[in-house]
């Protein structure tokens, strides 16, 4: 049986991770509003066949408006919905739709979240709320899906994986006391390797609900 992987999200980190993950990797880059409870059922492999099970789902869906800094007082209700509420609902509905496909393979769902959710960042309140919501969604899924031997995790990543260099630098300068302990940030290949390990029942069958911080040892938050 092939190893079926679904990566959901446009741009990085979704694209960078999809390029490094092994197996039959399907990438979907919908708008949050496109994700309803039947979203996964409607997806098809490149050869047109329907998805009938998933070994790994990687969520990294962060619309541009989530990644665009703005003081909360300057945001409209539409800005807020687009940056936080809509993608949060999309994450929940992706999980609902992916559930039966993951159970069929005793698979794994991994939410990639920016560290701003755990560490906070001025002018990125909506992104932080979205990130922290998704990080804890993974824990809730782990608790309720564990009896099906289906696991859920969160991987917390450096802001540079989500934000423009300028905005990432601003977030780091304003919040980080320390330089990366490793002296560098992890590569997409290194992050993908950890995600694959989380989905590998030979090595991590006893692990679920993990929240791993891969920020090079900068915040170590979450």
């Amino acid at each position: 049986m092939s190893r079926d992987v679904l990566v959901v999200g446009g741009g990085d980190p979704a694209a960078a991770l999809a390029a490094e993950l092994s197996g039959d990797v399907l990438v979907a880059a919908p708008e949050p509003g496109d994700i309803d409870d039947g979203f996964v059922d409607r997806l098809a492999r490149p050869d047109g066949t329907a998805i009938d099970g998933l070994d790994l789902v990687v969520h990294a869906l962060y619309p541009e408006r989530s990644r665009t800094p703005a003081p909360i007082a300057a945001m409209t209700a539409d800005d807020w919905a687009a940056a936080c509420d809509d993608p949060l609902e999309a994450g929940i509905r992706l999980a609902r739709g992916a559930h039966r496909h993951l159970v069929a393979r005793q698979g794994t769902i991994v939410f990639c979240v920016p560290v701003v959710g755990a560490a906070g960042a001025a002018n990125l309140v909506a992104l932080a709320g979205l990130a922290e919501g998704l990080r804890v969604l993974a824990r809730s899924l782990a608790r309720s899906w564990g009896s099906d031997q289906t696991s859920a995790h969160a991987v917390t990543l450096h802001p540079s994986m989500f934000l423009s260099p300028e905005h990432a630098a601003a977030a780091v300068d304003a919040t980080a006391l320390h330089d990366p302990a490793l002296g560098r940030l992890p590569s997409a290949a290194e992050i993908a390797a950890v995600i694959e390990a989380l989905a590998d029942s030979r090595t991590t069958s006893g692990l679920t609900g993990a929240s791993l911080v891969m920020d090079g040892g900068t915040w170590m938050a979450g």
Partner: peptide, 12 residues
Amino acid sequence: TVKATQRGIVKS
């Protein structure tokens, strides 16, 4: 999930 979202909001 939504209660965690509020924690992210608080910190930022």
